[in-house]
């Protein structure tokens, strides 16, 4: 059974239809990339999955749970956690408090301490900055914090919305390394929304390509990487 399944999902903002029947499948343990140009509906698809935008029709199933009508916090409890676009860390809270916010719904103290240690090993820089307010971090550090904050909820599936946004290529590379590490070490399923198609295709197992609210192409990442049409449209020739 797939971990997450979208069947013919439609969603709209007022009269503007953002998703025109999106279907996709994410198996447990996979890294899936969702690619597309600006305004293709990638973020809307993610928002629909985690209950921030209610879909008009279609089915979204996470494990054996119909997501429609469920509150975001219920989904977080079930292990479906999103790292929102633009990082959205809490600037006035310290790094440590940001991380504690990630564990908001958890009651198992030893587990939280264990995850905290894991994260401090994953991103040693966050340990050094633990007492600083989140807003004083650099863009790259903020992205690391945003991912770590989501990890504190011990996700079974992580939704990442444009983790490379506004970051230097070198930093993006190191963050993608960590995403790969999280996937292999924690067995966390990852759905990655990206504009940086090159890197995303290198990281992901499979990919979906969206154009104006529809999935136009899908397949193993390696195949898409070689595909002439994809190269021309998204990878710069």
């Amino acid at each position: 059974m797939p971990m997450l399944e979208l069947v013919e999902v439609h969603a709209a903002y007022g009269n503007i239809e953002a998703l025109k029947g999106v279907s996709m499948v994410v198996e447990a343990g996979e890294i899936i990339a969702l690619l597309g140009a600006n305004g293709a509906g990638k973020t809307t698809a993610l928002s629909a999955v985690c209950g921030l935008v209610p879909p008009k029709s279609g089915r979204i199933v996470f494990e054996d749970l119909d997501v429609r009508g469920l509150k975001t916090e219920t989904l977080v409890k079930k292990g479906l956690i999103m790292v929102p676009e633009g990082r959205r860390i809490f600037p006035a809270l310290t790094v440590m408090e940001n991380l504690r916010m990630g564990a908001y719904l958890r009651r198992d103290k030893p587990g939280v301490a264990q995850d905290l240690e894991y994260i401090m090993n994953l991103f040693p820089i966050l340990a050094a900055r633990a007492k600083q307010s989140g807003g004083t971090l650099s863009g790259g550090e903020q992205q690391m914090l945003a991912i770590s904050r989501a990890l504190m909820g011990r996700p079974r599936m992580l939704l990442l919305d444009e983790p490379s946004l506004g970051l230097a290529p070198l930093v993006v590379r190191s963050i993608f390394e960590v995403i790969k590490k999280i996937n292999s070490e924690q067995k966390t399923t990852i759905l990655l929304v990206e504009q940086n198609a090159n890197l995303a295709l290198m990281l992901a197992h499979r990919a979906y390509i969206m154009t104006t609210g529809l999935i136009t192409l899908s397949g193993p990442a390696a195949d898409l990487f070689k595909d002439e049409n994809v190269r021309q449209a998204y990878l710069g020739g």
Binding site: G86, R87, R88, I89, F90, P91, A92, L93, I125, A128, S133, G134, G135, T136, L137, S138, G139, G140, E141, Q142, L165, G166, L167, A168, L170, V171
Partner: peptide, 29 residues
Amino acid sequence: AREVYRHQPAGGGSNDGSSRAADGDTGHR
């Protein structure tokens, strides 16, 4: 003590620090 960041004139309180820290430096400040 928490309000410190907000009132700093430089840097701004925006939680999207991409323009300011686009270089993504890690640890030189």
